[in-house]
């Protein structure tokens, strides 16, 4: 029997895999993917709670998040292309011109 706890555990797992991806991977494309993973973990949790509380809000919110994630990916990738044109690299460690 799959209960709400299974879904919530899965969503938390997805979210924290994303968090670790952002914190520990150095390739910017992988970092973007990890952020998407975090958002999808959140989506799953919204859908689960929507089923659990018998309301439609969670379903709608999931669509909002998907739309915003797409917009965010568009701008993020545009920034990445711009960086690559100027610097020929997408490794996060190479972008450290500004320091205290």
């Amino acid at each position: 029997m799959i209960t709400i706890h299974h879904y919530l555990t899965l969503s938390a797992l997805l979210f924290f895999i994303g968090v670790f991806g952002v914190l520990y991977r150095r390739n910017l494309i992988v970092i973007f993917m990890s952020i998407e993973l975090m958002l999808n973990g959140v989506n799953l949790s919204f859908i689960t709670f929507a089923r659990y509380t018998n309301t439609m809000d969670g379903h709608v919110i999931a669509f909002f998040i998907m739309g915003l994630a797409a917009a965010e990916a568009a701008i993020g990738l545009a920034i990445l292309v711009m960086l690559f044109r100027n610097r020929r690299t997408v490794q996060a460690d190479d972008f450290s011109l500004m320091r205290d």
């Binding site: 910017l28 970092i31 711009m82 960086l83 610097r87």
Partner: peptide
């Protein structure tokens, strides 16, 4: 767009 500082700032803020 051509300024490295501006690029880097945008990247950091975005992520």
């Amino acid at each position: 767009r051509r300024d490295f500082f501006s690029n880097e700032a945008a990247l950091k803020y975005f992520i």
